[in-house]
Nucleic acid binder design. Structure first.
Lengths: 260, 260
DNA sequence: ACATTTATTCCGTATATTGACACAAAAGAC
DNA sequence: GTCTTTTGTGTCAATATACGGAATAAATGT
């Protein structure tokens, strides 16, 4: 009841503490360039030195962590390798690439491929623009689902199951962020009608984005393709053009997904 | 002394079992497309159903695993996201990209970026060739350090510290694999002399590769750039040309690394 | 040389994890 | 439709497991 906002440090509600701690250590180590010492880690995570030490030992034995010769511990690439297998399994990237490339050529803007995760979307692929002023989300990065193009597109496709969950999580990021469920209802309806989602700077003030969902035969959205542009580039007709393009691209990829 | 070759199933020497089991589950789930049931998992890993169940619960609570509505569990992308941060920290990819792209344009072959990990190298980036018959290592994949171009390049740069370790691990993969330490000594010496490593099909019969190391100011190799080509493409002068190119590329990237 | 910080080991103890069993809810057989 | 089998989920006591504190060792700084 106390961890709804923070959700991090937290009293464990009822979970295997040792696994939990081990993963915390892993997270901490991967997040930090270079190694950390035992003491440093234990303080940071509020654990005993002994405990931290033993956890590190097993993480080493399992190959997730390396013990550098200067007595400092750092994460190996194993975590990434394992995680990558997961991404590869949904070979969305491969299937989506051609359409994304086409979009990139056609628009010259940054193209994203994103999948839903909790109430966020995670970018699993992108094609960069040559424009020096361009969107800066890295692959692996995430954004709230209710205020970016890709997210709203996915939301629109699965609104039945998602509406109630997002309802209480409409966090504000900019003036334009939709924080009212009724406004969201309307926006989603519009999205469904025109076939693409349009984010008018609801997450980052100066960054607009378009999105359209990739759907399985069952109709469920598993990902979305998106285009991001700087606000200043928005001109008459731009919205319709980019929106149409991204919708077409998503359509064509969804088509391919059926054949797998 | 029993797990030096295999290193996998293993008798735990003395490690926190719960963390170990939890990570096993995570590995298994990420490796398998689609979800697995708790019974299936428990059988596969030789654990109790209750135990598996509880571990899954905590993995869910921590966001690493999702419980699908058909009662099956599957890995989320969290593992990957976390691991990715680790890769991002060495922003080698960013720095290396231009040189790799140049190599790709110049040669039309597959270009790899690899980092050492234990006695292997892990591919952290690549640029694909349009050639239908091309190298097939995925990003995130790995290869033995002593028989691919990138690996041997790294080996050559850090031979002082690595020689003794690889000495007992010269596993054979093809007829050409170097399994004799003295032969390796000679090959490494040659590599240092000419500035690039040349793998004549020592890992995969039909796949040749070139490699050159990326070194830090201190002289330590942290990664390598490689070119892979099908054996049939090897002609007079090809070796010198590709070797020279990859050496130059690595040189230029190493230069940039100094400025960070 | 001494003081201080850090990594590593030891060990008795209690807590947190475990596995057998029980129950519920599907799935499948017929 | 009922019965059987399989799967997911909860319970609970037993004890093995992981824990924390203190002791040691190694490194670092002064």
């Amino acid at each position: 009841m106390a961890d709804s906002v923070d959700g991090r440090k937290t009293d464990a509600p009822k979970l295997d503490s040792t696994l939990s701690k081990g993963l915390m250590i892993l997270e901490t180590l991967t997040a930090h360039r270079g190694g950390k010492g035992v003491t440093e880690l234990s303080k940071e995570l509020g654990l005993t030195k002994s405990n931290t030490f033993r956890l590190l030992q097993t993480l080493c034995a399992l190959g997730y962590v390396r013990n550098n010769r200067d007595k400092t511990y750092s994460a190996t690439l194993k975590t990434w390798q394992i995680g990558r297998a997961g991404v590869e399994n949904l070979n969305l990237r491969e299937v989506s690439r051609p359409a994304m490339q086409h979009l990139a050529n056609e628009t010259g803007e940054v193209i994203y491929l994103a999948v839903p995760e909790h109430l966020q979307i995670v970018y699993i692929d992108k094609i960069d623009s040559s424009d020096p002023i361009r969107s800066w989300n890295p692959i692996g990065g995430s954004a709230p689902i209710h205020c970016v193009g890709t997210g709203k597109a996915i939301l629109a496709a699965n609104y039945g199951t998602l509406r109630d969950t997002v309802k209480h999580n409409l966090v504000r990021y900019t003036d334009r962020t939709i924080t009212d469920i009724e406004a969201l209802d309307a926006d989603i309806a519009l999205t469904r009608k025109r076939g693409y989602a349009f984010d008018t700077g609801e997450f980052r003030e100066r960054g607009l984005s378009f999105g359209a969902a990739l759907t399985l035969p069952a109709g469920e959205a598993v990902a979305a393709i998106g285009i991001s542009i700087p606000r200043r580039k928005l001109m008459d007709g731009t919205e319709e053009r980019l929106g149409g393009l991204v919708a077409d691209a998503a359509q064509s990829v969804s088509q391919r997904l059926k054949l797998l």
